[in-house]
Computed example of a mutant assay.
Amino acid sequence: MADIGSDAKIYLKPGGFLDSPQYFDEQNKRLNNSLLWFSHVEYSIFEENKAPFRNLVPVELWDKIASRLPEPVQERAATQFANLTKSHSSLQCGERVLRFDQPHVMGILNMTPDSFSDGGKHDGDPQIAADAGFDMATAGASILDIGGESTRPGADTVWEGDEIKRVIPVIEKLTQCGAALSIDTRKAAVMEAAIAAGAHIINDVSALLHDKRSLEVAGVSGRPVVLMHAPSSGKDPHKSDGYGNVVTDTFDWLEQRVADVVAAGFEREKIIIDPGLGFGKSLSDNLALMNNIALFHALGQPLLIGASRKRMIGALSKEAPVDQRLGGSIAFAHHAIQQGAQVVRVHDVPETVQAAQVWRGMRDAGVTAQV
C-alpha cells in the first residue's frame, strides 16, 4: 500500500453477515449492539485522478491490513471500524425508551393536503389523525412522525403558523399513545411548539440548516434529532447539481454535518442520520444508496431509512401507483433492517412490523441454534 497518498479517503462497509456467529467467535464482530454480526470488511480508497481501490478483508485480518495504511488514512479507518462495533446509547423519549438492539418502525402521520402518498387523508381533523396514530402505536410503531408540510417535489412552502395549527392538536392527543412522538419539520417555531406540546424527537429533512434558529432550538430542547441529507436546504430540498459518487458524497456530507452540529454543542449520542432517499436523487442514486446502507454505520450514529411508497418503487414495478406500492415498501424496509438500519420510516405500519418481527424471529433462532 505504499502508493496510497496521505490525502486518500477510506470508507469501510461491513459485510458477510452470519446467521449463527457463535460458531465463529474469532471470525466476526457485532455490528453495533444489533442482532447482526459481520465477518468481512469491504474497504474502498478514493484518491483524486485515480480509480477507486477496493478490497474485501476477513475481520480477523483487518488490524494487519489497517496497519499498512498511511497514518492519516489509518486514523480514519480506525475511527470508522470503531464506529461499526460501538454500542449506541438508548434514547429516553418521555416514558418510552428506544433501545437500538433491535429495529424500530416509525409510522408516518401526515397532516397535509398535498403529501405525495396520503395527502389530505387526515388534513383538518386532528381526532381522525390521532386515531390513526393510536392504531399505528397499537400495531407496533415505536415512533410516530407527525408532519404538517409536504416536502414532495414541487410542493408549496407552508407558513409556520399554519404548520403549527396542523400538527399541535394531533401531538397533544397522542402524548399518551405509548410511542415516541417525532415532529417532521424544517422550522424552528414549529419545533418549539411541538416540543411544548409533547414531541420527543425532531426530524428535519434539512439537517437543521433551513432555519437559522433550528440548531439552537434543537440543542436547548435536549431532544434527539434526525439529520437528513438533502442537496439543498432552501425552499426546494430536491434542487441538485448531481453527484460525483452519490454514496461517498452523501457519506461525506453527513459526516461533516454531524461534526458541525456536535461542535455547536449538541450531544452526539442524540443524533440519528438519514441518507435522504428520494431527495434530489435519481433512481440509480437511490439504488446505490440502498445497496450501501451498511457503509453508513461507519459514521457512528443510528441510521434511519425512509423508502416507503417512494417514486423509485413505481419505477421498478411497471409504474405502480402510490397506493399499490406495499410490496416494494416492505422489500426496501426489510432490506434496510437486514443491513442494520435501526429505524425504518413507513406508511404501512402493521405489515412492516410483521416483517420486522419475522426477521427478528429468524435472527433469534440463528444466534441460539445448537445444530
Rank of each mutant, 00 (worst) to 15 (best):
L144Y: 07
A130G: 12
D123P: 08
P169C: 04
E172V: 00
W159N: 14
E149T: 03
V158N: 09
D123E: 15
I143G: 11
G148E: 06
M136I: 12
G148M: 03
K173M: 12
D145P: 05
D123C: 15
F134I: 12
L144S: 10
V170R: 01
A137I: 04
A139L: 10
A129T: 01
G154A: 01
E163C: 09
V170A: 01
P126V: 12
E172I: 07
A137Y: 07
G124F: 05
S150I: 01
E172K: 13
I164G: 00
D135V: 05
G154T: 00
G161C: 04
I171E: 02
T138K: 15
L144Q: 09
I146P: 09
S142R: 08
A155N: 04
V167W: 04
V158Y: 05
I143M: 09
R152I: 04
V158H: 08
I128V: 15
R152L: 00
G161H: 13
I168T: 06
K173S: 14
I143L: 12
S142W: 05
D131Y: 08
R152P: 01
A130P: 09
A132M: 01
D135F: 06
V167G: 02
A137G: 11
M136T: 08
A155D: 00
T138H: 14
A129I: 00
D131W: 07
A130M: 10
I168M: 04
G148Y: 07
I164Y: 07
I164C: 01
I128Q: 15
K165V: 02
I128E: 14
D135G: 10
L144V: 02
R166I: 03
A130K: 13
D135A: 15
E149F: 02
G124K: 10
